[in-house]
């Protein structure tokens, strides 16, 4: 499980990645987030909303209200040009960081095998 501090700084990037695939709403975003994270993230579903609202204040994402199939009002978020720019910058930073870390720590293991197997 990731440490909370490590997570806090990156949730915005995760959300930008998800929203870059197309407009989405809170519940669906959380589902996508959990699916992509494969159980590595441990955060309450409700804690995504403060991050979304903060990102909206920073104008990284924008929102519109629409009617859902069930008739309820639903808030849809989409990435703004500023958000897309930030995502590109994060991707570049990650490329550089991951290459550097690989040089020192070796490639990332995708499957954890028991040591004495």
């Amino acid at each position: 499980m990731l440490k909370k501090q490590t997570l806090d700084g990156n949730v915005e990037t995760f959300l930008l990645v998800i929203l870059n695939q197309g407009p989405s709403y809170g519940y669906a975003i959380v589902q996508d987030l959990n699916e992509k994270a494969q159980g590595l993230l441990n955060m309450g579903e409700g804690t995504v909303y403060p991050v979304l609202h903060r990102m909206e204040e920073k104008k990284l994402i924008a929102s519109t209200w629409r009617q859902s199939d069930s008739g309820r009002k639903r808030k849809y978020y989409r990435v703004t040009p500023k958000g897309r720019k930030m995502l590109e910058s994060k991707e570049q930073q990650w490329q550089t960081l991951s290459k550097t870390m690989e040089l020192f720590l070796g490639p990332v293991e995708t499957n954890h095998k028991p040591q004495n197997a």
Binding site: Y25, Y27, V30, E45, G46, Y49, S68, R72, K73, R74
Partner: peptide, 29 residues
């Protein structure tokens, strides 16, 4: 209770509550 702690301005309360309500209803469904 969430809104008590959020202590937002009145014009934001309704939007936030509607959004969280939609999330919870969809999850319950």
């Amino acid at each position: 209770r969430v809104m008590v702690y959020a202590n937002c301005k009145e014009n934001k309360v309704s939007d936030i509550r509607t959004e969280l309500e939609d999330h919870l209803h969809k999850k319950i469904e």
